[in-house]
Every structure is written in C-alpha cells, then in structure tokens.
C-alpha cells in the first residue's frame, strides 16, 4: 500500500517539479513568478493535439512541434511583451504576466471552447506495470522518466555549458553580465524560451492523465507554484525537490487521512513554510544591495 502511494506521489510530483522548475528559471531573472506559464503550456498542448487530430501527424512529430512552438512563444512573450514594460517594477511585471495569462485563456476558450478532449498518447494511463506489489501505469512511468531526463538535462546545461553559466550570471546581476560581454537581452529571451518548453512538457504529460481543456494547467500551476515556494523560489534544485515532496505528501495525505482535503495540503504546506522558513526549505536567504 505504502509503496503504491509513493509511486503515485512521484508521478504527480514529476509534473509539479517540472512546473516549479519552469517558474523558478524565469523567477530568478525577473523576480516575479510568470503566471502565464500555465496557459502558455496549455496552448502548446493544444498545438500538439491539433496536429495529431486535424493533421494526423504522429505523436512524436506533434510533440516536437509543440515544444518548438513553446520555445518561440516563450521568447516572443519576453521580446514582444515583457521587455516593453517601461520602468519595470515587480508589480507591473506581475500584472503583465497575469494579463498575458488571461489573454491566452480567453483566446483558447474562444478558439477551442470548453469541451474536454481525449489527448492521444503512445502509452496508456490504464495499462499498468507491476513490480512486486506496486502497480504503476505506463503513463506514470513515462512521466517520471521523461521528467527526470529533462530536469537532469536542464541542470547539466546550467552547470556545464558556457551559455548556461552566462544565463545564471545574467539572473544574478544582469549589468555585471553585460560588462563581461554577455548579450543579456538574448540570454533573457532564451531563458523564457527554455522555461516555456519545460512547462509545455509538463502539459503534454498532464493532458493524457486528465483530459485536454483550457483549464488543463490551473491545478498543476498552483501546485507547481506551491512546490517552488516550498523548496525555495531562488533554487531550481530546491523547487524540483519541493515538487516531489509535495506530490508525496499530497498522496500520503490522500491515502491515509482524507481524500477530500488532498488538494488543500499544498496550500497548508505553503503557509507553514512561509511562516517558519520564508526562503523555502532548500533556499538560502540572500540579501540584496539596492
């Protein structure tokens, strides 16, 4: 029973971890959570869906095109909208992300309606793989594997490539990065592109679990945000761990205490963390000189 619950927690946690990572990457650049993250991912999932149903492309083609779309959408959002904000303050940037979220949600609703669609996926949510007592859906296994591979790739990129390190530098002090020759504008754009791709992967893994509609990413975005706060908005690793922790706690709570209040756990955890460790479980408090 316990192992079963943990397996479910890891699979849900993978989605939260991806969303949390996507949020943290741009948060570190703008110091504002991108609330449009979820809808950007949802729209990307619709792109894949339309390719598969209207144009009969294969899953992998649709998946790839959706990720390219997400990348361009992320870069475009930064270049066309966010960068234009004059004298940006945290609040104005926050409002812009909320506005973009509403605009995307509205457009998606107008174009695709509220209808719930079955999202075709090569592995099924009903088939299970049994290991001992534990049975996990093949989709769950795929979710965990794809997420882990993607996250390891993202961390390796930030850690070991020149561009990745320059991106971190830009996040920490954009002027200092510029005087070292880093083209910070392009780097910030790229950051949004990468973040959007990570979010889109989460949406593409989420869509077959439930169904595809325009509210697809509401719950994952809130949970992902909770996970990021839990682990520390400033630490990508912390945010990912926060995602898995949240998935596990939520599932354990649902199994042993109360299914009805399962979703409330995430927000209870945020409150506790914000009371006792505001920089997150794994975050370091960083003072900033003004």
């Amino acid at each position: 029973m316990l192992a079963q619950v943990i397996a479910g927690g890891l699979s849900a946690g993978s989605i939260y971890a991806l969303v949390a990572l996507a949020l943290v990457i741009t948060y570190k650049t703008t110091e504002v959570p991108n609330f449009a993250q979820g809808e950007m991912a949802m729209v990307s999932a619709f792109v894949a869906y339309i390719l598969m149903t209207d144009y009969q492309t294969g899953f992998f083609v649709a998946f790839s095109v959706a990720l390219v779309f997400a990348f361009v959408l992320g870069i475009g959002f930064e270049a066309v909208i966010l960068r234009r904000v004059r004298n940006p303050t945290h609040l104005s940037v926050l409002v812009v992300t909320l506005g973009f979220q509403l605009a995307l949600f509205g457009l998606a609703g107008w174009k695709w309606g509220a209808e719930q669609r079955q999202f075709p996926f090569p592995v099924s949510a009903n088939e299970v793989i049994r290991v001992g007592d534990v049975s996990v859906s093949t989709l769950g296994v795929a979710t965990i594997l794809i997420s882990v591979v993607l996250m390891v790739g993202v961390f390796a990129f930030f850690r070991f490539t020149k561009l990745g390190v320059a991106m971190q530098a830009t996040q920490q002090d954009s002027m200092a990065a510029r005087i070292n020759g880093v083209p910070t504008r392009r780097v910030v754009g790229l950051t949004f592109g990468i973040s959007s791709v990570i979010g889109a992967v989460a949406a593409l893994l989420m869509a077959p679990v439930i169904t595809l509609d325009t509210t697809l990413m509401w719950d994952p975005l809130l949970k992902g945000f909770a996970a990021a706060v839990l682990g520390g908005l400033n630490t990508p690793v912390g945010a990912v761990l926060g995602g898995y922790l949240l998935g596990l706690v939520e599932n354990l709570f649902g199994a042993y205490i109360s299914v009805e209040f399962k979703s409330a756990v995430a927000f209870l955890m945020i409150i506790l963390v914000l009371c006792f460790r505001p920089s997150g479980l794994f975050g370091r408090h960083r003072t900033r000189k003004v």
């Binding site: 390190v165 920490q172 070292n180």
Partner: peptide
C-alpha cells in the same frame, strides 16, 4: 565589485571569458 554571488569563483572567471 559586482561578482556573481551564487556562482563559484571559477564560474565567475568563466563568465569573464565569455567572449
């Protein structure tokens, strides 16, 4: 100074060699 606080000394120097 404006060093990158979360990057290691070596990574800071690597950013210096970006060009």
């Amino acid at each position: 100074r404006r060093v990158f606080p979360e990057l290691s000394v070596r990574e800071n120097l690597a950013v210096g060699a970006y060009t």
